[in-house]
């Protein structure tokens, strides 16, 4: 039997101490990704440190920032009055993800840390540089319909599958991480990585670190927003492409805007060029179309995912349309 030890802890400090003791230990939050990976033989931690009892479940406004604890469930965040009122984009993105059952146990930290859904990554009989560096990328010339079109590397073309993270990228969130020496804070957009030469690394969390909370600035873009997720069925499917769009509108002029895309890169993909273009412009279809075109600079298909080259700009346009029509 592949035995593992189950440990439970009630403080972040002791959780990190336990992690430090053992290279092959992992945090267990909702378990909706980790347990699957263990069952499929993709990962085999010797210790599971259950962190569900660590009191990191707060959702509160402190100053002009909303704090969300790393162990808050996806459902708790999506349904929270404060989030619905001030960060509705996040609420929508969360509800577009997985299923109600999964969201009820999946946590903010776990969602950020979830691994790609690339089929080769899951099948230990197939080559995959992310699972086993050096074995090759099965998807590159294989079934890559779900795969990335931006920021790809020769080693890996996987996408980060999260919906929540797309909204958080757009919302300029920050992540607070703790380690044995203290805490550090990084911008959410810097949390995840591109595959580059190290596809085995999804993000910049260090081996001795734990995600503690998110801090999201309260904003002025909570009225005209939309999270549009295009998928193969109406619910319970990962995004082919998704777009988080939110802007501030004054006399049909866009005074502030955030745009990010999911299902297109190894990390949530912020559309800075499109944002810069739209800022100060009228919210018109032709401007939306130009912004969408700008977003596609550098996009590259790998065969089965070529359709994303068309779907992605279309989804940007439609998300902007829908954000605009939200009164």
């Amino acid at each position: 039997m592949i035995n593992f030890q189950y440990l439970r802890t009630t403080s972040a400090k002791s959780a990190i101490a336990l992690l430090l003791k053992d290279k092959n230990a992992k945090f267990l939050a909702g378990g909706t990704n980790l347990i699957d990976l263990m069952k499929r033989g993709v990962t085999a931690p010797e210790k599971l440190i259950d962190i569900n009892h660590v009191p990191l479940k707060q959702i509160e406004q402190i100053g002009n920032k909303i704090h969300i604890g790393a162990l808050t469930t996806n459902t708790a965040v999506a349904d929270h009055a404060l989030i619905k009122e001030k960060l509705p984009l996040l609420s929508w993105a969360l509800q577009a993800g997985a299923s109600a059952q999964l969201r009820n146990v999946a946590t903010v930290g776990g969602n950020m840390m979830q691994r790609t859904r690339c089929g080769y990554f899951y099948d230990t009989e197939m080559p995959c540089n992310k699972r086993q560096p050096g074995t090759g990328c099965g998807a590159m010339e294989g079934f890559n319909r779900m795969h990335a079109i931006f920021g790809t590397s020769e080693k890996c073309i996987a996408v980060h599958p999260s919906d929540m993270c797309v909204a958080l990228t757009a919302l300029d969130a920050e992540v607070v991480l703790a380690n044995s020496k203290g805490e550090r804070k990084i911008a959410f957009k810097d949390f995840h990585r591109l595959a580059g030469d190290t596809p085995q690394l999804d993000n910049n969390l260090k081996a001795d670190e734990m995600i503690i909370r998110l801090e999201i600035p309260v904003n002025n873009i909570a009225k005209n927003y939309h999270y549009l997720k295009v998928r193969d069925r109406a619910s319970y499917a990962f995004a082919l492409v998704s777009v988080a769009a939110a802007f501030e509108l004054n006399n049909n002029k866009i005074t502030d805007i955030r745009l990010a895309m999911g299902g297109v890169a190894h990390k949530p993909w912020r559309l800075t060029a499109s944002e810069n273009f739209l800022k100060g412009k009228e919210a018109t279809l032709s401007n939306f179309e130009k912004a969408a075109e700008l977003a596609m600079t550098g996009a590259k298909g790998f065969g089965e995912n070529n359709f994303k080259l068309k779907l992605a700009p279309n989804t940007i346009i439609e998300a902007l349309n829908l954000a605009k029509s939200k009164a």
């Binding site: 859904r117 089929g119 197939m126 294989g142 079934f143 069925r233 499917a237």
Partner: peptide, 16 residues
């Protein structure tokens, strides 16, 4: 994947 003769989406998340 015909290069390997193995199913890629043999689970309920991916077989829709």
């Amino acid at each position: 994947d015909h290069r390997y003769g193995r199913y890629i989406n043999n689970n309920f998340a991916d077989y829709h």
